Simulated assay, not measured.
Amino acid sequence: MKKAWGKKFFLFLVLPVFYFGWFLTYLANYYEHFRAIPENLYANSTSHYGCIYNFLFCNEGYHQEHDLCPNVHWSQRPQLYENLRQQLDSVVRVILKFPPRLGFIHHRRKIETSVRQTVQY
């Protein structure tokens, strides 16, 4: 009886939770780079500067800053953003209005860029 319970536990709990976790991870990663410009060092990913999201997810919204300096501790990313602000604001790059996990909402709207131009999808 224990064998059957172990298989059911794995099949109906562990496997779906594992799959859903990977799905959310890939979804967030997709929107962290959605509409980015790969050949531009300062625009090759997106950022979301919402304070609640960054508080809950260890400043993961500062993703462009993370891609520029991956060795900087997550708690120092806001300071890194301030240090790089002039370079980041000088290029057209995507700033998400919604967290990356909710990027599909942003996908249907106009994108906002750091130089405050609005680009139609």
Rank of each mutant, 00 (worst) to 15 (best):
Trp5Ala: 12
Gly6Val: 05
Lys7Met: 05
Lys7Phe: 12
Phe9Glu: 02
Leu11Asn: 12
Leu11Trp: 08
Phe12Leu: 15
Leu13Ala: 13
Leu13Met: 09
Leu15Glu: 03
Pro16Ile: 04
Phe18Trp: 14
Tyr19Ser: 14
Trp22Lys: 07
Thr25Asn: 12
Thr25Gly: 09
Tyr26Lys: 10
Ala28Thr: 06
Asn29Gly: 08
Tyr30Ala: 02
Tyr30Pro: 01
Tyr31Thr: 01
Pro38Ala: 13
Glu39Phe: 09
Glu39Ile: 11
Glu39Val: 13
Asn40Ala: 05
Leu41Tyr: 13
Leu41Gly: 07
Tyr42Cys: 07
Tyr42Asn: 15
Ala43Tyr: 00
Ser45Asn: 02
Ser45Trp: 01
Ser45Tyr: 03
Thr46His: 03
Ser47Thr: 02
Ser47Ile: 02
Tyr49Leu: 15
Gly50Thr: 05
Cys51His: 15
Ile52Ser: 12
Phe57Trp: 12
Cys58Gln: 15
Asn59His: 00
Asn59Pro: 00
Gly61Pro: 01
Gly61Glu: 00
Tyr62His: 03
His63Asn: 04
Glu65Lys: 03
His66Phe: 04
Leu68Ser: 06
Pro70Gly: 04
Ser75Val: 12
Ser75Arg: 14
Gln76Ser: 14
Gln76Trp: 01
Gln76Pro: 05
Arg77Asn: 08
Arg77Phe: 02
Gln79Met: 09
Gln79Gly: 11
Leu80Gln: 11
Leu80Glu: 00
Tyr81His: 15
Glu82Thr: 07
Asn83Cys: 09
Asn83Phe: 06
Leu84Asn: 01
Leu84Trp: 06
Leu84Arg: 08
Gln86Gly: 01
Asp89Pro: 03
Ser90Cys: 07
Val91Leu: 11
Val92Thr: 15
Val94Ile: 14
Val94Met: 07
Ile95Asp: 05
Ile95Trp: 04
Leu96Ser: 03
Lys97His: 06
Pro99Tyr: 03
His107Met: 11
Arg108Asn: 11
Arg108Ile: 13
Lys110Trp: 06
Thr113Arg: 06
Arg116Asp: 12
Gln117Val: 07
Gln117Asp: 10
Gln117Ala: 08
Thr118Gln: 09
Val119Arg: 02
Tyr121Leu: 10
